[in-house]
């Protein structure tokens, strides 16, 4: 794997006439953890979704593990196979069991045998501490359990990079830590991660680079020590004081 896992250079995106991303420049080194924060509507989700082509950028360059993201379906497929994603709303497949949720990708997209896929799925369910739920439907699990299943589902594809879009925002407070614990574990094992979150305790613990976005721009970025202690811009200072109050 290249030194640079993800590189965004001058990325711009419009929704119709609405300029949602303005000249985004961001480099994520291999093994690095980047935490993106910022007010609602600032474009955090859109940045993350552009990295695996759930949204299309109109200007600039996105390179993932040495492959540039273009309209070529092969480039999109290549990049998606390197990049896993965890959504705010989990997006588990409700008609399949937990185990089937995990084995679907390996079997259908990777052509893995059923037995191997099952073994791998069980291994990752152990890792997120819910092997005993393998045969339940997602609807029978708590939110925290569902999100851990979603993380395990991503891991089954053996991604080089994991994207998280507010993974704990839809959870009841008492379930947040069980998901963050799993994420900290992944971080410690060296996974490259881009995490949109307002969990600043988590950010302080794992982030190598903090990114603050507002109105479609990256206003400020830097290592957490300086980012939290001495934010340079007013907007960032104001945002941090608001979310750190509680």
């Amino acid at each position: 794997m290249a030194q640079t896992a993800i590189e965004l250079v001058g990325v711009n995106k419009w929704f119709g006439t609405f300029h949602v991303l303005k000249d985004i420049n961001l480099t994520v080194g291999t093994g690095e953890k980047v935490v993106i924060c910022g007010p609602s509507g600032s474009g955090k989700s859109t940045v993350v979704r552009c990295i695996n082509r759930l949204e299309e950028h109109q200007k600039g360059q996105i390179v993932v593990d040495g492959t540039e993201l273009t309209n070529d379906p092969q480039s999109v497929a290549a990049i998606r196979s390197e990049v896993g994603m965890v959504f705010q709303q989990f997006n588990l497949f409700p008609h399949l069991t937990v185990l089937e949720n995990l084995t679907l990708g390996p079997i259908k997209a990777r052509g893995m045998s059923r037995t191997d896929a099952k073994a791998k799925a069980m291994q990752y369910l152990e890792r997120v501490h819910i092997p005993d739920q393998a045969n339940k439907r997602p609807g029978q699990l708590s939110g925290g359990q569902q999100q851990r299943v979603a993380i395990a589902r991503s891991l089954c594809m053996e991604p080089k990079v994991l994207l998280f879009d507010e993974p704990t925002s839809a959870l009841d407070p008492e379930m947040i830590s069980e998901v963050l614990d799993v994420m900290v574990g992944l971080a410690e094992e060296g996974m490259t991660m881009v995490v949109v979150t307002h969990e600043m305790g988590f950010a302080r613990k794992v982030a190598d680079n903090m990114v603050f976005m507002d109105a479609g721009e990256i206003v400020e970025q830097g290592p957490p020590e300086t980012f939290f202690a001495a934010p340079k811009s007013d907007r960032c200072r104001k945002f941090l004081s608001q979310i750190l109050q509680h």
């Binding site: 695996n52 759930l54 497929a77 896993g84 959504f87 997209a109 589902r153 991503s154 089954c156």
Partner: peptide, 10 residues
């Protein structure tokens, strides 16, 4: 659902 399917390579 479509997006999740895409991210696992379907």
């Amino acid at each position: 659902q479509t997006e999740a399917a895409q991210t696992i390579g379907l």
